[in-house]
Design a protein around this nucleic acid. Structure first.
Length: 880
RNA sequence: GGGAGCUUAGCUCAGCUGGUUCAGAGCAUCUGCCUUACAAGCAGAGGGUCACUGGUUCGAACCCAGUAGCUCCCA
């Protein structure tokens, strides 16, 4: 059968994926083998595959496939996350397009729409992963909102509440006016902003003017947020500030609302900033809130949930906060109360999901008491620091430590409908119980008030932060919270590796570690591999709005899944951002093509019984095979080391070079028969065996092409599919072949290139060496690969010849045509000069007493060796 | 403002506990080749005072200090 010149991934990928699925190779059930477990970072249920997912899941697939081939019971659990705020926003938008407002329908109706949406789109991303080759155990697919996982969330909430780790409290929280919900601190992204600092005059009251110098008309305050002025309840200065000391205790008038407020003192104030006077708005700023509490000031919230001016403000009611800012500045200016405006750089918090500018707001919410949590489960920090849980790369330990040591309480309630509803019930008198369900809640309530009935109970309207379910993922996917049979949980947990981006180290990684120790007493995983973030060539993050992200499935269609996987992996050392460049994917595709053509070569050769092949060819073939075996073993060991350190791109590079350089460029060229001649059956079998082992080695990286060729090498009937074949093991190198001959071949090729001589022109060769045998065995191969007609050893330099060094050995190529002796001589002299310089530095070292006294013996030995080698080379070159 | 990290060939990165046959890899570049497995290829080659300045040391890309630039995290 004639094979295509180019590898065609489309023709094989779906076939093999289906084959693996049909044979159940991805499925895992507990047995006596060692488990190897990965839980997928569950993608957003409304999401579609992007480059980050591609990278992340390729890495997981590499790890899981290697483990599977190593005979472990490999289990990769897939699933999706309900992504409360993101999904709700999408559903709201979808409804709006149909003319339905969220407020006009009931909670149940809304949830109906949300589930419809989820059922329709929720599986898309998982289907896309299949195109990439992801070998997940699809039978285990989980969803954070499904019943079992929801039960887990409820039971954890109740347990933590009873253990005093969850409380309901009123504090200043982050408010997202677009999402209309509170957010945790982690969901607020600070961005630099070109802001304006407005200098506003607050006129003194008559009393103040009477008491002070009459020339003073008022106090000047600098603020970036004039629109919150209606919520001002005091002006604060530093107690030591000479400018204002005499005014402490006096009063000023808040413009626009004419409220009389006191001038107070607090050493929190930075005298250098602005005018040294701070307008205190306890309802809208964290620090102001603290000052307000300390000085017992009222907090007046002047904003609505939508971020508009509230009736409480008295003026500008209904105006958007930013429109109000413009308007109030204009009005103040007209009244002569705006002194000046300055440009400043400040940072402003934005919602991670909606990008809306966050408002600080006092609100009653549910919190996890993190300080207490860490006091009870200190392993969450210590086991990362002592590498019981290893981070790759380890630099993220610093970040992790810093966050945990400065941890704040976690706001877990969200004013949304899509999510796990908080299991708390209230009666009309404000009593509250936390319970598994309504019936349980009623029973608890009855112990407080015997006559209470079910319809008097109201469940908390809020849902929980999505991460409050995600942090249970490694436990909940194995039903670790479920009563009864814990076979899966006991077998698979703790999991082995987690692969994720550093951007969710706090959101998710840290919290999974915490939940692991809190709810199972064990770590959730042993290794965390932090991928980089996929960026474009200009280092910009890939994003929809920038339009700089390629469509992953198009890439796969164009370059093949294997090529795409390899392109991503090659440029992605752990923790480094990857700068996406299509040429990398192209490199992956080219590599597939290279492998494909190696197969084409082999499959096109004819064979004959060994007896029909000359002894010298048989010997050369044997030598070549042994040499490749050595290279193979070296590579396998290097790859295993790289895997141990989670250097996947290095491992892949080793495999790449083994295939391209050692297998194709050297080995196949060595054993390739003269055109039209057959290959001995033994050699063919050996080559196929080697090829097969190479395919096994690359299978975790490039599963499709390797499986395809593995089957092809066995005429479609291999003993086992490659996906479940044995992965080459690291072991001691059992072959030691001297391969100076390869250096010699390269040197001869180099000479041809430099002199512009055709490869078709045969050379006679003289090699002067002390290791004649090391070349003699290679003679057949040297002749073939360097087109040499005769080889002689340790002969005198001929009259007219080209000379060169190959390692320590000298070679001459006699030449009939005239040779530019002067140029040849110059080259030799340059070489001698370099070697002499080198020798001098080595001598200097060896004659340095302190070096000889301090350096390790092996280092000194090395220097002696260098000296000897350099001297020998110089002698060969005639430099004496 | 606080913390962490980075700065090695044109690009992306390796360089473990300091020892110049370690300054390396891949890609890109250049030269010569359509040598019947592969031009998505073959054979070669040229690129770097390891950010800068000092210091420690017999010896520094590697350790220390300072300077400059960049990135990330936290407030």
């Amino acid at each position: 059968m004639e094979l295509d010149k180019h590898y065609n991934p489309a023709a094989v990928e779906d076939k093999w994926y289906q084959y693996w699925m049909d044979k159940g190779f991805f499925d895992s059930v507990p047995d006596e083998r060692e488990p190897f477990t990965i839980v997928i970072p569950p993608p957003n249920v409304t999401g579609v595959l992007h480059m980050g997912h591609m990278l992340n899941n390729t890495i997981q697939d590499v790890l899981i496939r290697k483990a599977r081939m190593e005979g472990k019971n490999a289990c990769w659990v897939p699933g999706t996350d309900h992504a409360s705020i993101a999904t709700e926003a999408k559903v709201v938008k979808m409804l709006a397009e149909k003319g339905i407002k969220k407020n006009d329908i009931s909670r149940d109706e809304f949830l109906g729409h949300a589930w419809d949406w989820t059922n329709k789109y929720g599986g898309i991303i998982l289907e896309q992963l299949k195109k990439l080759g992801a070998s997940c155990d699809w039978k285990r697919t989980r969803f954070t909102m499904e019943e079992e996982l929801s039960n887990a969330v409820t039971s954890v909430f109740i347990k933590m509440y009873r253990d005093g780790l969850i409380y309901r409290g009123t504090k200043m929280v982050n408010w997202d006016p677009a999402g209309k919900t509170t957010l945790s601190d982690e969901e607020v992204i600070f961005k630099e902003n070109n802001g304006q600092l407005f200098y506003i005059v607050y006129p003194f009251t008559q009393d103040t003017i009477d008491a002070c110098h009459p020339s003073e008309k008022g106090l000047m305050v600098a603020t970036t947020r004039p629109e919150t002025l209606m919520g001002d309840v005091a002006i604060c200065v530093h107690p030591e500030d000479e400018r204002y000391k005499h005014l402490i205790g006096k009063t000023v008038i808040v413009p626009m609302v004419n409220r009389v407020v006191p001038i107070i003192a607090d050493d929190y104030i930075d005298m250098e900033f602005g005018t040294g006077c701070l307008k205190v708005t306890p309802a809208h700023d964290e620090n102001d809130y603290r000052i307000g509490e300390k000085h017992k000031l009222e907090a007046i919230d002047v904003l609505t949930d939508e971020g508009k001016i509230h009736e409480r403000a008295g003026v500008y009611v209904g105006l958007d906060r930013f429109a109000c800012r413009k308007q109030i500045v204009k009005d103040l200016d007209e009244q002569g109360l705006l002194n000046k405006t300055e440009q400043i750089k400040n940072t402003i918090g934005h919602s991670e999901r909606t990008d809306a500018v966050i408002e600080k707001k006092i609100s009653t919410q549910w919190f996890v008491n993190m300080q207490e949590f860490m006091k009870r489960y200190p392993e969450a920090l210590s086991d990362v620091m002592n590498d019981e849980i290893q981070f790759h790369p380890s630099k993220f330990k610093n970040t992790y430590k810093h966050w945990l040591e400065n941890i704040k309480d976690w706001n877990i309630s969200r004013q949304l409908w899509w999510g796990h509803r908080i299991p708390a019930w209230y009666d009309k008198d404000g009593h509250m119980v936390v319970a598994e369900n309504e019936a349980e809640a009623l029973m608890q309530m009855q112990s407080l008030r015997a006559d209470i009935t079910l319809d008097e109970l109201k469940q908390d309207v809020d849902v929980l932060d999505t991460w409050f379910s995600s942090w249970l993922w490694p436990i909940s996917v194995f039903d670790g919270f479920k009563e009864g049979d814990k076979k899966d949980f006991n077998y698979y947990y703790p999991t082995n590796d987690l692969v994720t981006g550093p951007d969710i180290i706090f959101f998710w990684v840290a919290r999974m570690v915490m939940s692991g120790y809190a709810f199972t007493g064990k770590k959730p995983f042993s290794n965390v591999y932090f991928t980089g973030i996929v960026r474009d060539k200009q280092r910009r993050k890939m994003s929809k709005s920038l339009g700089n992200s390629p469509e992953p499935l198009d890439l796969i269609a164009q370059y093949g899944a294997d090529g795409t996987r390899m392109g991503l992996l090659l440029s992605a050392p752990a923790g480094n951002d990857i700068l996406y460049d299509e040429s990398q994917i192209e490199q992956g595709r080219n590599f597939c093509n290279k492998i494909w053509n190696a197969y084409r070569l082999i499959s096109g050769l004819t064979t004959c019984p060994d007896a029909q092949v000359s002894e010298s060819i048989k010997a050369s073939d044997k030598l070549a095979s042994d040499w490749f075996e050595m290279r193979f073993q070296l590579s396998v060991n290097a790859i295993h080391n790289d895997f141990k350190e989670y250097k996947l791109s290095d491992a892949l590079m080793s495999a790449y070079k083994l295939v391209w350089d050692d297998f194709c460029s050297w080995y196949l060229e060595m054993v390739k028969p003269v055109f039209g001649e057959p290959m001995s059956e033994t050699t063919m079998q050996t080559v196929k065996n080697k090829f097969e082992k190479v395919l096994a080695l690359i299978h975790p990286f490039m599963p499709f092409i390797s499986e395809e060729l593995h089957h092809a090498l066995h005429e479609g009937k291999p003993e086992k599919a490659l996906i479940v074949s044995e992965y080459p093991k690291a072991k001691e190198i059992s072959v030691d072949i001297k391969d100076n001959a390869l250096v010699l071949i390269s040197e001869i090729r180099n000479i041809r290139n430099n002199k512009g001589l055709s490869p078709k022109l045969g050379f006679d060769l003289i090699v002067n060496t002390s290791e004649v045998d090391a070349y003699k065995t290679w003679e057949g191969i040297i002749s073939k690969l360097a087109n040499i007609t005769s080889i002689n050893y340790n002969a005198a330099k001929p009259e007219n010849c080209i000379s060169a060094l190959a390692g320590k050995d000298e070679l001459f190529i006699p030449f009939e045509e005239e040779i530019d002796e002067a140029a040849e001589q110059k080259k030799v002299e340059e070489e001698i000069a370099y070697l002499k310089g080198f020798l001098k530095s080595v001598d200097a070292k060896l004659s340095n007493e302190k070096f000889v006294a301090n350096a390790k013996p092996e280092v000194i030995e090395k220097e002696h060796q260098k000296k000897a080698d350099a001297e020998e080379k110089i002698k060969k070159l005639g430099g004496a």
